[in-house]
Design a protein around this nucleic acid. Structure first.
Lengths: 196, 196
DNA sequence: TCGGTCATGTTTACAACGTATACGTTTTCG
DNA sequence: CGAAAACGTATACGTTGTAAACATGACCGA
């Protein structure tokens, strides 16, 4: 805060006239970054050329955000702006809703859509954290999934998130780990035979 | 430090008689954790039943460590005890050496082994950070890949690491991202058709 | 034009943190 | 026995986020 104050030519305490505290300031930064993605022309709101294209665009959109703000991205990945049972780095309710609607529109069942959400977020988190940390970023605390913690935000504007909430917050880590590991080994086998 | 001091029934400053400072203490914690994996009977030092089995065991070993110490694992993933150009969470030189030797012994070319190392670490980081953060962990700063930074540790005991060092520190993030994304989409397509 | 309210900024202060420095003790060993 | 090493404590400093009280100017209705 003092540092930021200096930067603005002002005492640290002045900042508290505009922002309730450090945490809220960081939340605002995250919100600004997330909004950036909404303006990315490559990223689209619903599938035009199939869900693969849609997800490709979304993934690249998130990646561009991450690379554009390497030092801030871990923050984006770690804040629980709204629902702590959503997974970083796609925790913004708007985006989760967009994601689910898009896949359903493309013929995904509920389970398939939720499973895709899981795989997609885990993929993004792993790759992007690795990339930005190589660019000198600090990875701040990833946030806690408090047990009974419920949200103050209404889910009304996000019907799919609300409807699938239970499924979204289920913990499948063990199975996912096994499946992804299996698949990783297959891929490694492929590379092995290609370059041998 | 003060907290730890209290816990030990001692003033904070006493700790400095036994440890140079906070950072070194954390390094020691990480070292202890890494050693735990060396003692895991499921994890083996070189392939017995093929490299797939070897990697399965290694992956599960790392996962067990992560789940056993969720709050500490991010530290393991983020410390650069030795070589900053190695990727978390498998940064321990002994393990990297073991990894490379194992794959080569199983017929991997240099490039294939290094590529497998990349994929493997990225996979582990993504999944495990996600899992432990759901268990209430703080993800500390991932460390920086300082540009000219060289190690004080000798690479002599780790011939493969030394030999492949250049390849290991190459940055292929963009390609890796595309490939992994492609593969992710394939897997999602599979799930989609299975549950539809 | 006056007086009040509100937005904004400053000052001072406090608790928590890691740690430097100086000063006790107690233990060990030649 | 006596010196040195090992271990612990007391005090202090700089850095953090922020609470509380106070100052200042702009604006606005009477």
């Amino acid at each position: 805060m003092r540092r930021l104050g200096d930067l603005l030519g002002v005492e640290a305490m002045s900042l508290y006239r505009h922002v309730p505290g450090r945490e809220d300031l960081l939340d605002a930064v995250v919100a600004a970054i997330v909004d950036e993605m909404q303006e990315d022309p490559e990223v689209i709101e619903s599938p035009r050329d199939g869900w693969q294209d849609f997800l490709q665009r979304l993934a690249h959109g998130v990646r561009r955000v991450a690379l554009r703000h390497p030092k801030v991205f871990p923050l984006v990945a770690s804040r629980p702006p709204e629902a702590p049972w959503l997974r970083p780095p796609l925790r913004d309710l708007r985006w989760v809703e967009t994601f689910l609607e898009a896949l359903q529109q493309e013929g995904f069942s509920d389970e398939a859509a939720v499973s895709a959400y899981r795989a997609f977020t885990s993929f993004l988190l792993g790759h992007l954290l690795l990339e930005v940390s190589a660019l000198g970023a600090d990875v701040g605390p990833l946030d806690v999934l408090e047990d009974g913690q419920d949200l103050d935000t209404s889910l009304a504007p996000y019907p799919e998130v609300g409807r699938l909430r239970a499924a979204l917050s289920e913990d499948h880590s063990a199975v996912e780990f096994e499946e992804a590991l299996e698949e990783l080994l297959n891929r490694i086998a492929l590379v092995r035979s290609e370059t041998s």
